[in-house]
C-alpha cells in the first residue's frame, strides 16, 4: 500500500486551514454579535440588547413567515422523505430492473442542476397551472419543495440501506415474518436513523430555500428567507441578524439530533 500523502506536513497547511475557517466563521460570528446590538445599524455597535429579538417576535410579518416556513418545511420533508424511502428501497431491495441505472442517476441528478434553472422551470409550470386551474394556494410551494428535497432525503437513507445486511431481512423471512412484518420489525427499525437524517436534511433544505420559493410563491406567501430578502432590500436593521441567529440555532440543533441518533443506533 502506498504511504498516505501527509498533507498536514506540507508548508503553509496551518495558514491555509486557519484562513479557511476564519473566512467561513467570521461573517457568521459578526452577524451573531450584531443580533444583540442595541443600535439600529448592523455594522455599528451600540451596546448590548435583546431588543431586535423582541422586535422580531412582535413583528406580525415575521411570525406569519415563520409559520409558513415551518409548515412548508414539515409537509415537504414528510412527503419527500416518504418518497425517498420508497425510492431507496426500490433501488436496493428489488432485483435490477430495466432502466435501473437511469433511475439511479435521475434521483440524484437534481442536486447538480443549478437551482435557478429549476426555479425558472417551476415558475413556468406553476404559472401555467395557475392559469388553468385558478388555484393559487400553498400546493405549488409544497410540490416544489418536496421535489427538490427528495434527493437530499434520499442520500442518507440509501447510505444506511447499503450498510444494512440484506441477510437480516432474509433471516426475518426464514423466521416466519411475512414480507410486511420483515419490513416492520427488521428493515424499518434499522433504517430509522437514515430516515430521520433524511427528514432533517430535507427539513433544513426546505427551511432555508430562497431561490425556488421566490420564483414559485405568490403574493403573501413569504417564507422567512424570502421575507428577510425583502427586508434587506429596503433597510437593514439588526432584526434580520436576530432572525438569522434563531435560524442558525434551529439548524445546529437539528444536525445534532442526527448525530445523537446515529451514535445511539450504530450497527455494531
Amino acid at each position: 500500500m502506498a504511504k498516505a500523502f501527509p498533507v498536514t506536513h506540507q508548508r503553509g497547511f496551518g495558514t491555509v486551514a486557519i484562513t479557511t475557517f476564519i473566512f467561513l466563521y467570521a461573517p457568521l460570528a459578526v452577524a451573531l454579535v450584531f443580533a444583540f446590538n442595541a443600535g439600529t445599524s448592523p455594522a455599528k455597535w451600540g451596546g448590548f440588547s435583546l431588543r431586535w429579538f423582541q422586535s422580531a417576535a412582535n413583528n406580525q410579518q415575521v411570525i406569519s413567515a415563520s409559520i409558513l416556513s415551518l409548515k412548508l418545511a414539515a409537509i415537504s420533508a414528510i412527503l419527500s422523505t416518504t418518497l425517498a424511502t420508497l425510492a431507496a428501497l426500490a433501488m436496493s431491495r428489488t432485483p435490477r430492473f430495466r432502466g435501473w441505472t437511469l433511475a439511479y442517476s435521475a434521483i440524484s441528478f437534481p442536486l447538480m442542476v443549478p437551482e435557478i434553472v429549476t426555479a425558472v422551470a417551476l415558475l413556468v409550470v406553476t404559472a401555467t397551472f395557475r392559469g388553468w386551474t385558478g388555484y393559487s394556494g400553498l400546493g405549488y410551494l409544497v410540490l416544489a419543495h418536496t421535489a427538490f428535497c427528495v434527493p437530499f432525503a434520499y442520500l442518507p437513507i440509501r447510505a444506511r440501506l447499503q450498510t444494512m445486511d440484506i441477510s437480516l431481512e432474509r433471516a426475518a423471512g426464514d423466521l416466519y415474518a411475512s414480507p410486511w412484518n420483515a419490513f416492520r420489525f427488521v428493515t424499518m427499525p434499522l433504517l430509522f436513523p437514515g430516515i430521520l437524517a433524511g427528514f432533517i436534511l430535507a427539513f433544513v433544505t426546505s427551511l432555508d430555500d430562497v431561490v425556488i420559493t421566490e420564483f414559485v410563491k405568490t403574493a403573501g406567501q413569504d417564507t422567512l428567507p424570502t421575507y428577510m430578502l425583502g427586508q434587506v432590500r429596503r433597510t437593514i436593521t439588526p432584526e434580520v441578524n436576530a432572525i438569522a441567529a434563531v435560524f442558525l440555532l434551529i439548524s445546529v440543533a437539528l444536525v445534532m439530533c442526527i448525530y445523537v441518533v446515529n451514535q445511539r443506533t450504530k450497527i455494531n
Binding site: 445486511d165 437480516l168 433471516a171 427488521v186 434499522l190 455494531n268
Partner: peptide, 11 residues
C-alpha cells in the same frame, strides 16, 4: 436456517 454470518438482528 443458521446463516453463514448468523444474521442476528442488531437492534
Amino acid at each position: 436456517t443458521v446463516f453463514q454470518n448468523y444474521a442476528l438482528f442488531p437492534h
